[in-house]
């Protein structure tokens, strides 16, 4: 299911399930203007993705993961509405339609920047509250005052590959070192964002062996020291 469609369903679910009620698929279909059959099918797919739980005869409700995703889209939608009406002075009705389209392609970083440039609005032009962000910031004031984006919300501390425990898995954050080395590591699949598992390290500060994208690589200690992964401890 395309990302856009998923997000539309989640948003509708969030609106209809106010107060924690289960949502009937017929209500969902009516709201989104689709056939009941396709709404049922979509809910089943969301179920498989773990975003929605479904009980026959009662209806569907958002899982914690689904609720989080839905709130994020909602937040983007309402921030965009504020931007379009307050800064670009568009009509609220038009702003709502535009925001519906733009919310799906808005990156988390832009969303953050938007929030700060609007000085952290609380509610949208209609008066509905904007769901708060879940970034690791002290307060909205410090966030607005800081000159740079706070970075990814789930970004743990960067530690070198060599300090991982054998058998643990972590995400590659960045790779430093000479051009040729970085290039070689990238070619072999060790790109930023990739999951990497430390299989073993040789004794006496020898090389390490890692598994990445289903392949095993031996990497010399000197190079492995410059491959930074998310500290598994701080990410949890």
């Amino acid at each position: 299911m395309p990302k856009e469609e998923t997000e539309e369903y989640l948003e509708a679910m969030l609106d209809l399930s106010a107060g924690g009620r289960a949502v009937k698929t017929t209500a969902l279909a009516e709201r989104l203007g689709v056939a009941p059959a396709s709404a049922t099918e979509a809910v089943q797919r969301l179920c498989r993705d773990g975003l929605v739980s479904y009980e026959p005869y009662k209806g569907a409700s958002l899982t914690p993961k689904g609720r989080e995703a839905a709130s994020r889209v909602k937040r983007k939608h309402r921030l965009l509405e504020v931007f379009l009406t307050r800064v670009l002075r568009m009509a609220p009705r038009k702003a709502h339609v535009e925001a519906c389209r733009m919310e799906h392609s808005l990156s988390d970083d832009t969303e953050e920047a938007l929030c700060r440039s609007l000085h952290g609005p609380d509610c949208c032009p209609d008066g509905d509250p904007i769901p708060p962000c879940d970034r690791d910031v002290e307060s909205c004031a410090t966030c607005i005052a800081s000159p740079r984006p706070s970075g990814k919300r789930d970004r743990g501390q960067a530690v070198p590959l060599t300090s991982m425990q054998p058998g643990r898995t972590a995400r590659v954050l960045f790779v430093r070192g000479g051009r040729a080395v970085v290039k070689r590591l990238c070619d072999l699949g060790l790109t930023p964002g990739t999951q990497v598992r430390l299989l073993r390290s040789a004794p006496m500060r020898g090389p390490v062996e890692v598994r990445v994208r289903g392949c095993d690589l031996a990497i010399g200690r000197g190079i492995a020291l410059k491959v930074f992964v998310e500290d598994p401890g701080s990410a949890a």
Binding site: V181, E209, L217, I219, G222
Partner: peptide, 8 residues
Amino acid sequence: VGIIMEIP
């Protein structure tokens, strides 16, 4: 420069 080698 250190080793980078696939282990099949």
